[in-house]
Design a binder for these strands. Sequence first.
DNA 1: AACCTGTGTCGAAGCGCTTCGACAACCTGT
DNA 2: ACAGGTTGTCGAAGCGCTTCGACACAGGTT
Lengths: 337, 337
Amino acid sequence: MVTLADVAQHAGVSASTVSYVLSGKRTISEVTKQRVERSIQELGYHPNAGARALASSRSNIIALMMPLRTDMYVPVMMEIAIAVATHAREHGFDVLMLTGEEGPAAVRRVVGSGLADAIILMDVELDDARLPLLRESGRPAVLIGLPAQTTGFTCVDLDFAEAGALCAEHLAQLGHRQIAVIGEAPAVYERKTGFAERTIDGLRTRALQHGLRVLHRPCEGTYAALAGALGQIFTERPDVTGFVVQNEQALEPLLSLLRQDRRAVPEDISVVAVCPEQVALQGSVRLTSVTIPAREMARHAVDRLVSKIDGQADEEVFLLAPELVVRASSGPAPAGR
Amino acid sequence: MVTLADVAQHAGVSASTVSYVLSGKRTISEVTKQRVERSIQELGYHPNAGARALASSRSNIIALMMPLRTDMYVPVMMEIAIAVATHAREHGFDVLMLTGEEGPAAVRRVVGSGLADAIILMDVELDDARLPLLRESGRPAVLIGLPAQTTGFTCVDLDFAEAGALCAEHLAQLGHRQIAVIGEAPAVYERKTGFAERTIDGLRTRALQHGLRVLHRPCEGTYAALAGALGQIFTERPDVTGFVVQNEQALEPLLSLLRQDRRAVPEDISVVAVCPEQVALQGSVRLTSVTIPAREMARHAVDRLVSKIDGQADEEVFLLAPELVVRASSGPAPAGR
DNA sequence: AACCTGTGTCGAAGCGCTTCGACAACCTGT
DNA sequence: ACAGGTTGTCGAAGCGCTTCGACACAGGTT
């Protein structure tokens, strides 16, 4: 194994000089720098991570904690996780993946041992058990999601209320008067992450402003559950001409059932989805959708976190503005009813 | 920050004694052990990860490298990643997530710096650029997937050939004589991970033994692509009564199109999928499927890796045996044709 | 010529832990 | 009673790096 001392000897300088070349924390003459860098190359030197962490009390590792409940199928999480890892590298950080399995104790362990310099919590619940531990640890942290009590934390999330509002507005402007919302599975509401509620609240408020009637049905992402919900909806409100779908797993079943039902999209029924772009594009119909900007959220979270690690104490809530993209699944409300 | 020395002083013993209590590497009397443990509790001591890594040259971190190409939508990867992280914790390891973005150099960096004790490579390609670096580093490694040249590596993968064979066998035993395979997207074949080929090879071989005719069509997971493929298949082989679907994204489109086409599943057409269990269960029809046992693969990979870290040099290829579960999408071939 | 300032380099002191050899203190068997 | 073996504990030497103060030497000022 090649050490700093080896490099120093090879380059004919002291160890500290090599260290300063590496970190740039003191001015080093161009010639020395070049010489040291050549030695590093020739010897194939890699600084030892442990020694570095010990001496500098910085590990250059960010912990990323996955949702506490892993019982759900959430591709968005994967997208965020990968984006976090990729973006963290650009700041010189590696990412440690913590699963929900270990529970809140993982926060204490990772932070207490100095394994991670900072932590990102995904899918934060309104009253999240990890938050008190985190607050007390005093480590830089960024939450993805919005807990009930945000004081002391930096939060990054999509502005779900506005996302819901955009859906309502879009359908209202197309002339629809009655719409139905296929909500997330009941389990999602029980988890109390809040985003589902914020979406529907935002949607309702905007709908009211436009005189749009809204029927909201939480729904599992299975074919059977959706068939049931759909039957109910059309029984209670036969005049529904628009759907807003929050549960991405319900999308294909919905389109498929509408087709069976001889209701054409978008001629008879308009569908607007809240989902990642990929999902909107890959189905049987190119869906009008409000995109969940997973990468941008990840980028934001990492940027915030890094600036906190560097001591810039900001403590804010960042709500990313959603954007509605019109595609082939929405159109004017059918005339004459 | 509480250190080992603080604990030692508080318990009235030497630092090394505390260390031995923690590691169990030397016998310590029951009374001393208790006293030390109480001090640890009272002071809220957490061993410093960096110092530990430096002194022991073991970081207790496993690096998990994601697929090089992230352009695909692969829930299975997420399942494996989470299972790896969870299972690694049971062995006292944390998991560092490396993305494909950084490329093969990530291997050198992580391994060279001693950041990770070992590495798991996911989605290994037949001729993977990361393998030479890994081999030369000499670090324990486990590959998920099967490269062309396995010498020197431990590999864990599903026995895809057998998975394909099971599908053929199942359909043959139900009396089908002509089947079609909806393969992975062409891009998957171009990536040369080999599993798609192994599946179809295994399927073909077994089909031959049973006198089953096979038509193989790679296919994107979009509705449009599938509609095209399906049209072709029924034109070329109107007597096809069974489908094997390898591309999980093609499943819902297929079922939906068959329905539109007035072909009943499983009365007219049997469908067998190769996919994670969750996917088989959540669609409009409960699918007969060969499950991809993501968790078991992860468990195996971690177990192998840990025993390699502990110096038990094994260097083998583990192919997990697939299992076909009969559900509602397959049945006897329609009589009288 | 004496002074200051800034630049580039070095030496040494740790960071918090593991681990090795040493060594009391206690058993056992003769 | 004493050699020999156990058992439990300690001290000290690092692990490879960062960082602080010191210092030599250049150039610019009085």
